[in-house]
Write a protein that binds this DNA or RNA. Sequence first.
DNA 1: CAATACCGACTTGTATACAAGCCGATATAT
DNA 2: ATATATCGGCTTGTATACAAGTCGGTATTG
Lengths: 240, 240
Amino acid sequence: MNRASPFRERDSTRKQSLAERVYEALKQMIFDFELLPGDYFSEAEVAERTGASRTPVREALHRLRREGYVEVHFRSGWQVVPFDFEVFEQLYDVRIVLECAAIGRLCAMSEQPATLQALRDIWCVPIEERSFATAMAEQDKAFHTALVTASGNQEMARIHRDVSERIHIIRRLDFTQPSRIEATYDEHAAILEALARRREAHACQLLSTHIALSRNEVRKITLHMLHEARSRHAQGPVGM
Amino acid sequence: MNRASPFRERDSTRKQSLAERVYEALKQMIFDFELLPGDYFSEAEVAERTGASRTPVREALHRLRREGYVEVHFRSGWQVVPFDFEVFEQLYDVRIVLECAAIGRLCAMSEQPATLQALRDIWCVPIEERSFATAMAEQDKAFHTALVTASGNQEMARIHRDVSERIHIIRRLDFTQPSRIEATYDEHAAILEALARRREAHACQLLSTHIALSRNEVRKITLHMLHEARSRHAQGPVGM
DNA sequence: CAATACCGACTTGTATACAAGCCGATATAT
DNA sequence: ATATATCGGCTTGTATACAAGTCGGTATTG
């Protein structure tokens, strides 16, 4: 078996291992809701779809498991972990803690890194130059990740990146409303300004509010989605 | 092959998977300096020593890799990652950030969890009741972990636990001097007292100093160890 | 008819076989 | 003598074979 598949074609690009490609593909499927929260599936199915054997599939799955995306039931298959909003809210709070710490460090620097100027070039622009693409969620994530990375503590940055990635699946929902895109531009610009002026307390205050706002918006949207989903199906499915 | 081994004997205790047991064993070997920082080894060697096949060994190794303990060189074997003091100091700083956040939450609670009273029963005791066992490092770790867990954010607690575990290998060195054990008792008691009185700023101050002290002590001790190791061997080994 | 025992398909966990790349020793050529 | 090419053993990456447990449907028994 293991006939040709999109994964095995490009033997020229021999940088990533097969296990890593399967990992990326699976995470993408989860993010694209091709695999829904609560869905059950088996290693064999994944191997079939990706064209790889079970070995790299298992490696990818166990990595996703440790990162909190899926869970395994002993000899009874895998499951995409159902949404747990309490977990997401806790992760939002972790973001607040880490990013405020980063702001503290940045404000204490006599000379701030060049990254901050690059961020200002993106976010502190006149309204007509603002991009309101579908990639807004990625840009927002990049902003916050860059902030922590610029603070100089790479271990903290790594942890923050993992947390951000984990939240990403629902954070995207925040940018479906145009008003939220505007608000994000305004708030990012204000944070950068306070940062440049070394107003630590003010910057932290702005950033905490900014993240908390996003968290609340997402909570509202997700509850709405849940309500709709429950209306469509006769009796409410338990999964997500 | 795969003759009897300590790992396969107890088929009654069928709770942990073989891969997990190998993971624990490998981490223990690293912590016990049976595998030294910088050491190279192969999957086959580990399989031989543990009596498992390469499959669970690989699963354990890749988990340790993601956690930062080992690294793999493509088709050239595995290596225990050499000590990088910058990384350790960054992880100490992450601890400060997370634990101060936990203190903030605990001080804001109208009714603090019962865990705190349990901690006081351990740490706020007269001098003659203090235990100065070799397990001091574990007790210290448990204190800080309990603090974050009690704050209520389980995701933050999970992250903090991983960071603590990663540092543990050098944190133990801090308790080789009796004076440091005394200081730890005093400082933990002071932190718990400030916490009970809801003196957030004071508690954070005490805790930051406490962790920073520990960090500096460990830095000194490790540099001393390095110096000694370099003296023993003719030319200084690069590894650790 | 209801309850239970059993069987078989399907699952993950583990062991092994095979593929492909790295690295140093050795031989060869200049 | 030195530089270079080649080859063989050892390494991880991947595929497959086997072991052992889960679960639901079905037959059997009261």
